[in-house]
Each structure stands twice: as C-alpha cells, then as structure tokens.
C-alpha cells in the first residue's frame, strides 16, 4: 500500500519536475521576445513637445487665420517632417485659440468660411459638416464632436503649439 503510494508520488514528482523545466525553457525563450514586442507600450512617449509655429502673438486677430508649420517626427528609424495646420484666433476674452482643422467626422480638412453660404463658421467640404467659431460642431451636420484644440504656450511673444486635444461630443 505504502509502496504503491510512493510510486505514484514519484511519478508526480517527475511530472512536476518536467513541467518546471519546461516552464523554465518556455520562459527563457519568451522573456526577451515578449519584452521586445511590448516595448512601444512601455516606452515613454516623447510627444507633447511644443513647436514654434512662426507666428507672433501680436499678429493674431479675432479672425481665424490658417497657420502651417512642420514638426520633426521620429518614427523608429524613420525621420520625417510632416506639416501641421491650425486655425488660430483670439476669442472675446483675448485668449488665443488654436483649433485643429481635422473634421471630427471622418478626418477631412475644414476651413474658416469655406462655404459662402455659411459665414462665421468652419466648413468641411466632404460631407458639409459645420462648426461654430469656437469649434463646436453644429447639430444636424455629420460631425459628432467639436474640433480638437492644440495645447499652446507663448514664449517671447511667439506662439508654440503642442498636441491636438480631442474634446467631448456635444
């Protein structure tokens, strides 16, 4: 009886050892590949840098104006300088507002007074989406959220813009 029990525990011991060694081999094989695969998730995002858009604060009026600038983008081993666009104006409180021109419907480009029928509004030519001057989407037109707003700061009287921050749907 006790002999039989011992035999079973011996086989169990061998099975556990087998699983242990197998687990060790699997872990040893997979630790580095998995860490490599998830590296982008754990890497600290270096976005959020502010870029000089080449516009003096004094030149900003209450009328939205289109500003184009380029940012240096590093995508792994591939470096490029994509251009960015913003509509910049001063609101009633004399605060600078920089709106992203990307339509929140399907990502087309909106422009200020882009359609003569709709003065004082941003207009998207793709599906006739419209936004108020502050970027709020007009109900009844396709977009479901206001235009994104760029993070901004002013240094030495020059406007710097960062990431475009999405706003909640109205």
């Amino acid at each position: 009886m006790s002999k039989e029990k011992q035999q079973v525990s011996r086989r169990q011991f061998l099975n556990y050892s087998l699983m242990g060694v197998g687990g060790f081999m699997a872990a040893g094989l997979l630790v580095s590949p998995i860490r490599m695969a998830i590296d982008p998730v754990l890497k600290k995002s270096d976005s959020g840098d502010y870029a000089n858009v080449g516009l003096s604060v004094d030149d900003i009026t209450t009328e939205p104006q289109r500003v184009d600038w380029t940012v240096e983008q590093v995508d792994g081993w591939y470096e490029s300088e994509p251009s960015k666009t913003a509509w910049v104006y001063k609101d009633d409180n004399d605060e600078i507002v920089a709106l992203s021109p990307i339509c929140t419907h399907l990502g087309c480009v909106v422009s200020w007074e882009g359609n003569e029928q709709y003065p004082e509004q941003f207009f998207c030519p793709c599906h006739d989406g419209r936004y108020e001057k502050d970027g709020t989407n007009i109900k009844g037109t396709p977009p479901l959220a206001p235009l994104a707003v760029y993070e901004q700061k002013v240094e030495n009287g020059i406007l710097f813009l960062g990431n475009a921050i999405d706003r909640k749907g109205a």
Binding site: P82, S83, P101, I102, L106, G107, C108, V109, P125, C126
Partner: peptide, 8 residues
C-alpha cells in the same frame, strides 16, 4: 499621411 481629404 498628410492627405487629410482622403475618406477612409
């Protein structure tokens, strides 16, 4: 990527 008028 800059072709913002493209409808996906």
């Amino acid at each position: 990527p800059t072709d913002a008028a493209y409808i996906p």
